[in-house]
Design a protein around this nucleic acid. Structure first.
Lengths: 342, 342
DNA sequence: CTGTTAGCGCTTTCAT
DNA sequence: ATGAAAGCGCTAACAG
């Protein structure tokens, strides 16, 4: 119906209302310092509504030196957890009057966080939500120089990090299987260059020791193939664990496949727990127990932290603990040794 | 290291090079109409490089009336296909000098395509890639009024649509199972409100009839639960099909779960084919055959089509046919009747 | 070959 | 209670 056309400008609706465009600006922005004659106010509002006026975000941002936009850089993974983190971030940002743009970083071509500075330098956004960074070497202590927050990862400096309680998740897992008599447990996870994996691994070591549990850790590819390969190797060794936690949903498929192929029954011979929750786990051959993490809360908290930085409010690291639950399904049972000991 | 600071402006580097900022602009933009003294050129380039000059995209866009950005609106689904479409789009956009922002539309709160006009009206982007629209009622023939292209869906008007060859995928599926003797086939898919589903369904009806195949279509929720429920109902009816195509990866899990629960063996009693390919399918209890669609090509073609519209080049609907392959796995076998007839 | 000028659409201080 | 004017950082005629 309507042809392709430039939207109405402030001056257009000023002309329609018979006032100066600065007056329109004040009225539309609800400037509290000024008062307007009610009838002028009405004329302006009517004119604006009639043409469906939308302020030019560019011009406004140029003038104000604030874009009102934030960029969320996420790794381009098949893993569905990010879509939940995004949901939380999107919703909170909308509540706080910000606009979120998603940038996906190709997994094959990861870039250092500093790469994304250009978005701020070019004034496309006010701040960066970084979910993509691999774990930083300790010596990379340079300031990024632009407002940013690491999401689900810790960057090189404190005060910029919003993460979940991975240690708590590991504890939930270990307590669950230890309570069922498992004394030898494996953790199959991605590379520890991912900060979440690093933290899970550290926690697993510490907590296993405290509980007198023997722990075997395998780092492998973030894929079905990775899970398969790690599991196959694990089974080839002597002294095979009786329970294993798996860091990533894609790996879970590989782990289950390898166990099946090797004739290791789940859960009779091996209990399996996923650190990613997904609905599909409930429908597998043997439904898989998982730990459900506070993903939406992570996204929302990250937005809050970033806005704090943009507005130069003092900020500290944030640890999201809740809600975190173990979703019990059929892939966990008592340890074989305990059983036969009955 | 560097403190948070405003980036250098054109005037700053003009000052550093001792020239007027318009000269800097010309040089940095490689204006071919003008010539510059090599030494001036060098001085300018050096100054710009030294401060890592980044043009303010806002100011530039405001002046040029072009932002160089496009928005990709995608449904917020767990389905990993979108990440491949995105990859194709991102790469092509980068090649063509555009910047892509992703907006995810909450599945619970779908909005009409016209909703996203505001992004163009506010001049946040030059065009819209719409992957989210449900199938439009025929009477919604309004022009959107801004450059846009529907991706993997057809909008109400021709010339704006980039889709894949769903009919070809259905034909591949039907030919595959018909060749193995299946005469009664089911299609379990999402709601036909989605244009891809609508086209698959239409094609399935037409092609089944042409081949003398009995077709049963079930539309259900886009989820594991949907697949489960549709399959359960399907099995309750008399005259159960011997092969089924499943529209969506999440549904596949539900379908397999329901078949297992009902004691229907795959592939002996029921052959299963997924219309979404994903690595996890290869690792399931019974590895699932799938049709691999040209997703990255879809994303790239959509970007090309949108840029054509932004630049007001004549454009037509695009149908992406290739590469499309059937990935054979273990979930398809000869029809039971044919077997026993051996 | 390079500088001057105007202006993209908006906000904001200062007048009136 | 409203208008005038300046300016955000950049590009693109047009001068010279």
């Amino acid at each position: 119906m309507t042809a392709q056309q430039r939207g109405a400008r402030l001056v257009d609706i000023a002309a329609a209302a018979g006032v100066h465009h600065s007056t329109v600006s004040r009225v539309l922005n609800g400037d509290p310092a000024q008062s307007v004659r009610p009838e002028t106010y009405e004329r302006i509002m009517r004119a604006a509504r009639q043409v469906g006026y939308r302020p030019n975000a560019l011009a406004r941002a140029l003038k104000r030196s604030r874009t009102g936009a934030i960029v969320f850089v996420i790794p381009m993974l098949r893993n569905p957890i990010w879509s939940i983190v995004q949901r939380g971030a999107l919703q909170r940002a909308a509540e706080r009057g910000y606009f979120v743009m998603m940038i996906e970083e190709p997994t094959e071509d990861p870039r250092p966080p500093a790469h994304y500075r250009y978005l701020i330098d070019e004034m496309r956004a006010d701040g960066l939500l970084l979910a993509t960074a691999e774990r930083m070497p300790e010596h990379t202590r340079d300031e990024l120089g632009v407002p940013h927050v690491y999401v689900n990862r810790r960057g090189p400096r404190p005060g910029h990090n919003v993460v979940m309680d991975e240690a708590g998740a590991v504890r939930m897992f270990l307590d669950h299987v230890a309570g069922l008599g498992h004394r030898h447990v494996a953790l199959i996870d991605c590379s520890p260059i991912w900060d979440t994996v690093y933290r899970r691994t550290m926690a697993a070591r510490r907590l296993s020791t405290a509980r007198g549990i023997t722990l075997t850790v395998r780092h492998t590819l973030t894929s079905e193939e990775g899970g398969w390969e790690a599991t196959t190797k694990l089974l080839r060794g002597g002294n095979v664990p009786t329970a294993c936690g798996v860091g990533n949903l894609n790996q879970v498929f590989g782990v289950l496949g390898a166990l099946r192929e090797a004739g290791v029954r789940v859960p009779e011979d091996m209990s399996v727990v996923s650190f990613d929750e997904d609905a599909c786990l409930a429908y597998l051959d043997v439904p898989v127990t998982s730990i459900q993490m506070p993903l939406a809360e992570l996204g929302a908290a990250a937005v809050d932290a970033l806005i704090a930085r943009i507005e130069r409010t003092p900020a500290t690291d944030v640890l999201i603990r809740e809600p975190m639950t173990l979703v019990p399904r059929a892939s966990v049972a008592a340890a074989p040794a305990v059983r036969s000991g009955h």
